[in-house]
């Protein structure tokens, strides 16, 4: 738990409200959530001396742009950063494709906080 206190989790999502509640939830468990709203920002962040433990990608925010989401997955995979994909229940097909790019889990929104935190503890520890 002490090791996880400094861990950064990349929040690859665009909706400010989602980022806010994610950051609040992560902060209460000792994580830092860093918002990443697009490919360029992800690449810039990964170039920094930062060792993100985990990525949480809301695929719904990038749903119509397959190229962009493909790049995001590739970047995370190349850096060996495990990532979890969040998807709207009606677009789970889109999320399921992410398994081919190394996603550890695809979760339908809304997610139970406790379940997400349990998963994070397992992956980011």
């Amino acid at each position: 738990m002490i090791a996880a206190a400094a861990a950064t989790i990349l929040l690859v999502m665009k909706k400010p409200g989602n980022v806010r509640v994610m950051q609040q939830t992560l902060a209460r468990s000792g994580y830092t959530g860093k918002m990443i709203s697009g490919v360029a920002e992800l690449q810039a962040t990964l170039a920094e001396p930062l060792s993100p433990r985990l990525g949480i990608v809301d695929v719904t925010d990038f749903g119509s742009n397959g190229r962009q989401i493909h790049t995001i997955y590739t970047c995370l995979q190349e850096r060996s950063i495990p990532f979890v994909v969040l998807s709207a229940p009606q677009a789970l097909d889109l999320g399921n494709h992410s398994f081919a790019y190394g996603a550890t889990n695809v979760l339908p929104k809304p997610i139970a906080k406790s379940a997400l935190l349990q998963l994070i503890h397992g992956l980011a520890a």
């Binding site: 409200g17 989602n18 929104k109």
Partner: peptide, 14 residues
């Protein structure tokens, strides 16, 4: 105005 609505968690959870 700051688009603070969310859908990753249920309202009850937040």
């Amino acid at each position: 105005t700051e688009q603070q609505s969310y859908d990753v968690f249920a309202a009850a959870d937040v």
